[in-house]
Amino acid sequence: MTISVKKVSLQRTTRDQIFLPAILEGLLTTARHFFKNTFTPGHGDVETIRYGEPGVDVKDYYPERFRGVHRLMHREDGSVRCVACMCCSTVCPARCIYIEAEDRRDDAEKAPRSFVIDELKCVVCGFCVEACPCDAIRMDTREHWIPTETRAEAVLGKVELMSRGEQSVAVQGGLGASYREQAPKADPRFTHDPR
């Protein structure tokens, strides 16, 4: 295992001086790409993601960890999992999450009266997901925020955020004793588990 030093250099040759051979070599290289891409199905080496094409689901292109549009998770009864603890809005470097709390009048006590995310301000760092202590907010929709005509359309409220949601893996007050067996380490739903 050694780290050594090497000199790199490039010597000019007569062949380089007369322009044409190198130019021809270059032309052949580009022409090879041209013909391959033009005449093979699926455009050869072109690996462009074809957003907006009918029949193309861009979700297929995104990896599992892709950080996309936010969503709010549900409780068993379908209400919002979030309890407005403000961790996400605190940790958000872009300050794009605005939450107002209200009294739920059940054992969960607290819920967001309004939960607003300005997707235009969001820098997609994923810290809100990491900061959420309730598995209430996630970014695993594999949905890219698409441009909108007005700014207001990019401001998502609680209803829109919940419409992408599903039931959360966390429960109010925890799973109780022996939770470590109930929530196995390898469960992918417990996202962001580095251990």
């Binding site: 603890c85 607290k110 007050g173 925890g174």
Partner: peptide
């Protein structure tokens, strides 16, 4: 102690 930090005003 309950797991209440998210809903606790004192947090």
């Amino acid at each position: 102690h309950p797991i209440d930090c998210p809903i606790c005003d004192k947090a």
